[in-house]
Write a protein that binds this DNA or RNA. Structure first.
Lengths: 186, 186
DNA sequence: ATCAATCTATCTACTGATAGATAGCTTTGA
DNA sequence: TCAAAGCTATCTATCAGTAGATAGATTGAT
């Protein structure tokens, strides 16, 4: 038998994988339970409702994603490295088979999501924009907050859009080239 | 009683609206039937399967969208007008409440779609890219097909991404400003 | 009279969710 | 120290609801 946190982690891992591939409305407690070798009732023990489970997935995903990006205020942080790494994270999503960005796929489904899942999804985008704006603000000398905020939106929109479009076209693309018109990293 | 084509049109209209708002996996025959005042069995009479109905929705949507854009080869076509109109179509999607671009939402769900719906979704993007590439090629004097194709991808990705991001942020934005770094329309 | 279109009624499969039982720890108190 | 009590994590079994789909009767216009 696995420990409490091990089981919870395995449920969250499986749920995240399913949601990234198929979205909120196409995953079920039973398939997650089957995948990790327990019964669906046991999944309900840890996560009472589907909305509760999905919200937990999004919160963990957002937290771990933002943490992995690094702290913009860190003294030895290099803005270009931070942004290159940010872009690479999106490139990696496309490489991992049949997956979407969790935020992107849930935002597409937003109107059919329970409130707590929709709220967590909105928070994912808010935190991405905040991080991007901070990096642009601190390291590129864009001292007008509105300008760096707008630039952050363009970066985020282009990366999410590239995922959406390339998913259907099944083509390879360099994400860094997609944003080069408004973000020079060379 | 409505004629055959009237009923079919109303089914397609209702299905399109539901899919644009909630995606493929969150709409049902029963809600569409109820909305237009018939029974779900009657919807099955016109569209035997859910996949069949959704594919018909996407084909009609793609066809009517591309047709509405105008013909790039037309002698009196103005490239800037064509592109401004294209961008405005995406702006309109954001204005219409709680809707997404049909292609965008289905591309997000792609892995959980039946083959015929996924194929129709891919075709939507292929035809968008073809139209954009044609316009750029013919009117902006970009004679390298690879360059205009890449520019078309950037335009499409940015517009789809803007829809995805703004859906969660619930903010207003000028789509023309989002693409101005690589598409000057002034 | 025909036949397209719609209906009623039903089916199977699956959904999220809950109830109740149980095995095995862990805590507690005399 | 050791039994009583409670807790954790799981199970089996089942619920009501909804999904897509189909068979067969009914309607109604030409």
């Amino acid at each position: 038998m696995s420990s409490r946190s091990e089981t919870i982690t395995r449920i969250l891992d499986s749920a995240e994988s399913h949601i990234c591939k198929k979205g909120y409305n196409a995953f079920s407690f039973r398939e997650i339970a089957h995948e990790i070798g327990i019964k669906s009732a046991s999944v309900h023990y840890h996560f009472p409702t589907k909305a509760n489970l999905a919200a937990a997935v999004v919160l963990r995903y957002t937290d771990s994603f933002i943490k992995s990006l690094g702290e913009p205020n860190s003294p030895n942080a290099d803005a270009k490295d931070l942004l290159k790494n940010y872009i690479q994270e999106f490139q990696n999503v496309l490489i991992s088979n049949d997956s979407m960005c969790l935020g992107g796929i849930l935002s597409a489904e937003l109107t059919s999501l329970p409130d707590e899942v929709a709220d967590a999804t909105r928070q994912f985008f808010i935190e991405n924009l905040r991080w991007l704006t901070d990096v642009l603000q601190l390291h590129f000398g864009v001292n007008d907050i509105a300008i760096s905020h707008f630039k952050a939106m363009k970066i985020l929109a282009m990366l999410e859009g590239t995922l959406i479009v390339m998913r259907s076209l099944n083509r390879e693309v360099q994400f860094e080239e997609m944003v080069e018109d408004f973000l020079n990293l060379s």
